[in-house]
């Protein structure tokens, strides 16, 4: 591997890692604040991609379609929290697992009913369609760099919201002590609704931005879900910072293992996770 190719691979790894972070951030946020293990998180990613495809067909505008998809996802999240999740806060964690598995079934069926089962694709918008030459053979598409930057921006945004705003303060307080927050006269239910809605929207947003790069197919959510869990667990459940570090780590390890250790490439992220959990049973940055 010469140096130029090494750099391209590093870029591949970073870009994949950043996208993973975007998907995983919502999951870790919801778990951290609400203690809910949302197995249907991957389905939200899938819904985002399908909504994007649908609205691009309808409006022919990338930005408009992205905005519409994000808003619908947010509403969906709010509705789910209000009708289903909020009845389970005082119940066993396993009931939440069962509920979200039921939701996976429903979302998969809805996808098949609404949009069919053929693989779908979204074209890269014109203004982002160029590419940059890296070596004599390899080019890097502007869109993928745009997505990477967008993920970075969102990561920074999340960091600021959580550490610098009143909402973020409540989120942090809710993580450590639910009763305390309630005693302070804060409507914890509203906080939970907002956080869950935001979590769903983040997953859907990841689906939206990956739509032009990925293939939109049934079952795309479940595959992502596992990678997502790996990231969240390595980082420490509930830690946004952990998820960020872990996502980059998984992205880079996965990318290089694919080329350097092909025999192990299917297992490498699981090996990584197992090793980290053996050394640090609570993940890298658990609170």
């Amino acid at each position: 591997m010469d140096f130029a190719i090494f750099l391209v691979q590093l870029l591949n790894g970073l870009q994949y890692g950043l996208l993973l972070f975007l998907i995983a951030s919502g999951l870790t946020l919801v778990f951290g604040v609400m203690g809910i293990l949302n197995l249907a998180h991957g389905s939200m990613y899938m819904i985002g991609a399908y909504l994007m495809w649908y609205f691009v067909q309808l409006t022919d505008s990338f930005v408009l379609a992205a905005l519409l998809s994000a808003v619908i996802a947010l509403l969906l999240g709010v509705v789910i929290e209000k009708t289903l999740i909020n009845r389970l806060y005082r119940r066993n964690h396993l009931d939440q697992v069962l509920l979200t598995i039921g939701m996976i079934f429903v979302f998969n069926a809805m996808q098949s009913l609404l949009w069919g089962d053929d693989p779908l694709g979204v074209a890269v918008p014109g203004w982002l369609s160029g590419s940059i030459s890296l070596t004599e053979l390899v080019e890097y598409p502007v869109y993928r760099i745009f997505v990477a930057l967008l993920c970075l921006l969102l990561a920074a945004g999340l960091y600021l919201v959580i550490n610098r705003t009143r909402l973020g303060m409540l989120v942090r307080a809710g993580e450590s002590n639910r009763e305390m927050v309630e005693c302070l006269g804060i409507d914890i239910n509203r906080l939970y609704t907002i956080v869950f809605g935001a979590g769903v929207m983040l997953a859907a947003l990841a689906g939206v931005v990956s739509a032009p790069m990925a293939s939109i197919v049934p079952g795309m959510g479940e595959h992502v879900l596992i990678s997502c869990f790996v990231v969240v667990v390595i980082g420490g459940m509930g830690s946004i910072k952990g998820a960020f570090v872990a996502a980059l780590m998984v992205g880079i390890v996965d990318t290089f293992a694919a080329v350097l250790l092909p025999q192990l490439s299917s297992m490498i992220v699981y090996i990584l996770m197992a090793v980290i959990l053996i050394i640090k049973p609570q993940g890298l940055f658990s609170s």
């Binding site: 009931d95 509920l99 039921g102 079934f105 429903v106 979302f107 998969n108 069926a109």
Partner: peptide
């Protein structure tokens, strides 16, 4: 579309 019914039933039972 048994998946849809199955999903709904599971949710209802939880």
């Amino acid at each position: 579309h048994w998946l849809l019914l199955m999903g709904c039933l599971i949710i209802a039972m939880v």
